[in-house]
Design a protein around this nucleic acid. Structure first.
Lengths: 141, 141
DNA sequence: TATTGACCTTCCAATGATAGGAAGGAGCAA
DNA sequence: TTGCTCCTTCCTATCATTGGAAGGTCAATA
């Protein structure tokens, strides 16, 4: 049942296999290519994309950076640092720290929202009556 | 300097004044109207939108719900509860609680991201050398 | 060999919430 | 009337992702 298209160049994977190997789905891989996050790869005569082990590493890198909440723009920057032999770890650390700050800020905002809602729900009877401090608070300053 | 278009119907505000009064900018008010979050309002003969005090309350309601992180879909639902005399506070409270859970979940995810990054940055020298555990971790599982 | 079915290709559109601009009309003051 | 600000609609962009349509390719099976 399993398809094996690698007879022609056995060190390469097609996009479906690359998707499985990297954890980034095929649609998204094409998208990342189109916005220049990952480079264009070689193709077969019939136009199928071919992915090497390095390409898979790069896709995995992207997925993991996304999982850490980095934006595509930040990921482009991380990739260029990753591939730049003359980078300094200070550059990377600075990006990470700045991202940590952004995450902290977002966490704080969400906590404030949650605490406000918690406060409102505590004052709401939650019964069959229509009186509801949650709605009242939303309607009036 | 201040424009006063209300000579014709002095209890109504045009969209710019409604924006100031509600804290929702004019562009966004039109957008909310177009997606059905707020109803279409009456117009002057020349097509200018006219907002009543009730309309301003509604816009304020929307802004405050957004500030609490509710989605537009949820806000539509909240508005229908708000305007429904036979609503029960239990319905509203249930929505609020469910939203609190969603916020908690999001907070948890962000905290995990942050903690992972904190851990990585602690192990990164952050000096002039290229060796960087942050990048290494991203590249390899 | 012909067909099937799973894969690949490109292109175009939608999501959700908001922002931006262009082109043209309306209101009002000097 | 000029000039300015505001209003109108419509179209576009953002961000990351998902979806579908239409059509080509691969490998295996009838």
């Amino acid at each position: 049942m399993k398809k094996d298209m690698n007879h022609f160049l056995s060190n390469f994977l097609n996009i479906g296999e690359a998707a499985k190997a990297s954890g980034v789905n095929a649609k998204l891989i094409r998208h990342y290519e189109s916005i220049g996050v990952v480079p264009k790869v070689n193709r077969t005569d019939s136009g199928y994309r071919l992915y090497s082990k390095n390409d898979i590493h790069l896709l995995t890198f992207v997925r993991r950076a996304r999982n850490l909440g980095f934006s595509m723009k930040e990921i482009k920057r991380l990739i260029s640092l990753w591939r730049n032999r003359s980078r300094t770890s200070a550059e990377v650390k600075a990006m990470a720290k700045s991202h940590i700050s952004a995450l902290d800020q977002k966490i704080k905002e969400l906590e404030e929202m949650r605490d406000t809602l918690l406060h409102l729900t505590k004052n709401c009877h939650g019964d069959n009556r229509p009186e509801c401090p949650i709605l009242e608070n939303l309607a009036h300053e």
